[in-house]
Nucleic acid binder design. Structure first.
Length: 489
RNA sequence: GGUCCUGUGGCCGAGUGGCUAGGCUGAGCUCUGCAAAAGCUCCUACAGCGGUUCGAAUCCGCUCGGGACCUCCA
């Protein structure tokens, strides 16, 4: 029997058994990128983590509606409800329309996601596409008394809300602590309380992105879009809401407050937060100068990088750490991952060439079970990968006649690889199903047969010449007992 | 300063009360015409101090170190 799926819930700070509100449907909402600049590798980690969660839920047979928004308006430079909209600012600097900025970085984001084999979500809604929904939500929150309007800006009344609800529940803080630690900033006299945040912001005339509303021309606050869009596509209550850990204290805390202010219901039953990517022990961030872009890591073209790595290798590297732990990037760790990943991928080809024995010396059902147990334990990809390396050992041993695999075993191994390596972890072997690769395979098999003929004749100078030449162009020959195989070095 | 998280072998990184994590590196062995690959074995760790327990990396306390958030950030 499989263990049940358990998920660490930020809301309760415990692992809890997962079951959907309306099986077999699962509603999953993840906060997507603000498209004002290139996504960096830390962003990628978050979306790869949720890709695993999405893929595993699909693998378990759930009908998942995965909503991941694109923030294309309303995200200010600072969270204190003043300052410029990030996209407007970039547009002015670049002398472009805000929507040109949005288009450019949205396309770039999708390309990067595709490079890392991240599945597209079911719905990818934008903030600007849901202005009406956000205005309606603001009206309702006002009606219910959780917000107030001052000079065309609508603020959420946190202190009133906190009198009835656990405002800081998600981040584990109480109101007094939050108040103590909030700075007084200039120009915020409009707010009744220091923790209040804007639902709708009055636009200055020169502001590039603004829309008519009952409170005049303006634009939505950052937190509101997620409340509006999750409610629209997943309902007032749904199964899982996720995002990066840095969104917990402000964005997600305010999102919950908005939803409860709107309809009295907390939006998600499970909150999943992914940890940060660090470089040399510090969070990857542009201001620290330690961030690099996906294509820089792929090409190796960056001061902090010794060499480049393939996208699947990078994905594998990230999955060797649990999503809830910080992942520290280093060249050494990447190189170690690269070697391990190559071994894993190579074993898949070895598996395809195995011949069945009449008997079996291994228990693959147990191995398969351990794979499920790993994923069911809060999507523990490092443990799953450890199990896959046990499969690698079995496959390589079988290739050397040190273990026996019958036809059923081989079928089951292929199934395990397909399910876990390809479907769940999303690790596609590069160059797979490539026509030129097929042709190359034919050429290589011919060369190998020539070399084996030479070996039969004990013409070792000839056989070594073939091997050495192939070596010099980056192809490595490996002799097994009965056959020879090749790989790129 | 406040809140929270965290400290595992040469490196990366799972594990939350007793049973081998795993990967990479290094050494040895086996296979092999040689080499490579592969398999096997070894280097058997839990920051420090104290406590709870028959038993702790795992629970509790203190000390020291690292990080995140509180200000935009996935």
């Amino acid at each position: 029997m499989k263990n049940p799926l358990t998920i660490y819930n930020t809301l309760t700070r415990k692992k809890e058994q997962f079951y959907p509100l309306n099986p077999p449907m699962v509603g999953l909402y993840v906060c997507g990128p603000t498209v004002y600049s290139d996504v960096h590798l830390g962003n990628c980690r978050t979306f790869i983590s949720f890709d695993i969660i999405y893929r595993y839920l699909l693998h378990l047979g759930f009908k998942v509606r995965y909503v991941r928004n694109i923030t294309d308006a309303g995200h200010l430079e600072s969270d204190s409800d003043h300052g410029e909209d990030k996209i407007s600012k970039k547009a002015k600097l670049s002398q472009l329309e805000p929507m040109e900025i949005v288009q450019k970085y949205t396309v770039g984001f999708r390309e990067v996601m595709n490079t890392f084999n991240v599945l597209p979500p079911s719905i990818e809604p934008t903030a600007t596409g849901h202005i009406i929904e956000q205005i309606e939500m603001t009206k309702k929150i006002l009606e219910r008394g959780y917000a107030y309007e001052v000079n065309g800006t609508v603020y959420f009344n946190v202190e009133k809300y906190a009198a009835e609800q656990a405002y800081g529940q998600l981040s584990g803080r109480n109101l007094e602590e939050l108040l103590d630690n909030t700075r007084d900033l200039d120009g915020q006299n409009e707010k009744k309380g220091r923790l209040d945040f804007a639902l709708w912001i009055k636009a200055k005339p020169e502001h590039l992105m603004q829309w008519p509303s009952p409170w005049g021309m303006g634009f939505p606050g950052w937190h509101l879009e997620c409340s509006a869009m999750s409610t629209k596509y997943l309902g007032e209550q749904f199964d899982i809401h996720g995002g990066g850990m840095d969104l917990v204290p402000t964005h997600h805390t305010n999102e919950i407050a908005q939803n409860i202010g709107y309809c009295g219901k907390s939006p998600a039953r499970f909150w999943i937060h992914t940890n940060m990517l660090t470089v040399n022990g510090q969070k990857m961030s542009k201001s620290l100068g330690n961030s690099f872009l996906p294509h820089e890591l792929i090409s190796g073209n960056h001061a902090l990088l010794k060499k480049g790595f393939s996208p699947m290798c990078i994905r594998f590297f990230m999955l060797m750490t649990h999503y809830g732990s910080t992942l520290d990037f280093s060249n050494d760790a990447m190189e170690a991952a690269e070697k391990g990943f190559a071994r894993l991928i190579e074993s898949r080809r070895t598996l395809d060439q195995l011949h069945a024995s009449p008997n079996s010396s291994v228990n693959l059902t147990e191995l398969q079970q351990k794979c499920y147990n790993a994923m069911n334990d809060d999507f523990n990809t490092p443990v799953l990968i450890a199990q896959l390396f046990e499969a690698v050992r079995i496959i390589n041993s079988a290739a050397n006649n040190k273990e026996q695999l019958n036809a059923d075993d081989i079928q089951l191994l292929k199934k395990i690889y397909q399910h876990f390596l390809v479907d769940v972890l999303g690790l596609q072997a590069e160059l797979e199903n490539d026509k030129s690769r097929e042709a190359l395979n034919g050429v290589m098999n011919y060369l190998i047969s020539l070399r084996n003929d030479a070996k039969q004749r004990k013409d070792f100078p000839a056989s070594d010449a073939i091997r050495n030449h192939l070596n010099s162009i980056g192809i490595q020959i490996k002799d097994n007992k009965e056959s020879s195989t090749w790989t790129f070095q």
